[in-house]
Nucleic acid binder design. Sequence first.
DNA 1: CGGGATCCAGTAGGATACTG
DNA 2: CAGTATCCTACTGGATCCCG
Lengths: 122, 122
Amino acid sequence: MDVPTLLDAPQDCRQVSEVLNRVGDKWTMQVVVALRDQPRRFNDLKRQVGGISQQMLTRTLKTLERDGMVERTVCPTTPPQVEYALTAFGRSLSVPVRELARWARANLATIHDNRRRYDSKR
Amino acid sequence: MDVPTLLDAPQDCRQVSEVLNRVGDKWTMQVVVALRDQPRRFNDLKRQVGGISQQMLTRTLKTLERDGMVERTVCPTTPPQVEYALTAFGRSLSVPVRELARWARANLATIHDNRRRYDSKR
DNA sequence: CGGGATCCAGTAGGATACTG
DNA sequence: CAGTATCCTACTGGATCCCG
């Protein structure tokens, strides 16, 4: 049941923390998921991810592009069209994240319950 | 290859983002991993997780306890002894996280490479 | 349409000193 | 030993206006 070759060394923990910290911001995974099935343009993406501002969408996409997770394609027409697509690398990340998604769906309610119980105790 | 029942609905994305946001801070997973094999006391834990301040360790442990991931046991001796242990719930989280750890180990270098290439281009 | 440039509030993270 | 209290800085996220 244990996987002793993983997470044993301290640097492993730091690597995991770094990746979690990277993809654990408010919008990154929602944008990645919105791009999962097909490439999308900026405002299309903005509609797909409800509640995000252009500012944050721009920042999130730029960071994803910098990390090689998203490819940005510009068609120099008027008005300009910019398409964003997940790269293979970006797609590979969504595999382990999907496992975490399964856990999140199953256990998020428990977390909220635990918090309410803890908070009501004092 | 697709798992269409997961990550399709927008609320799924938000749940994943919420969990990632929760465990994606700087210290949470490092503390969880440090507690994986056996319970530990405060300063023991502080040594195990290198570089963390008492302040942040206290905060991280309290949040983990609130979420039901860690159990806190006080032995009222002098000096006081407080032991922290992962709960079964906390342990269950480490399963999907271990998958992410695998990905992190395999791909973190690629991320750093992508960033250097992106930054050198402009 | 797809951003860039500013400004601003809130939170995360850290250093240090003190306490039961 | 195991925290609490305080203070400070940096970054995240958001709103708004402007521009090619």
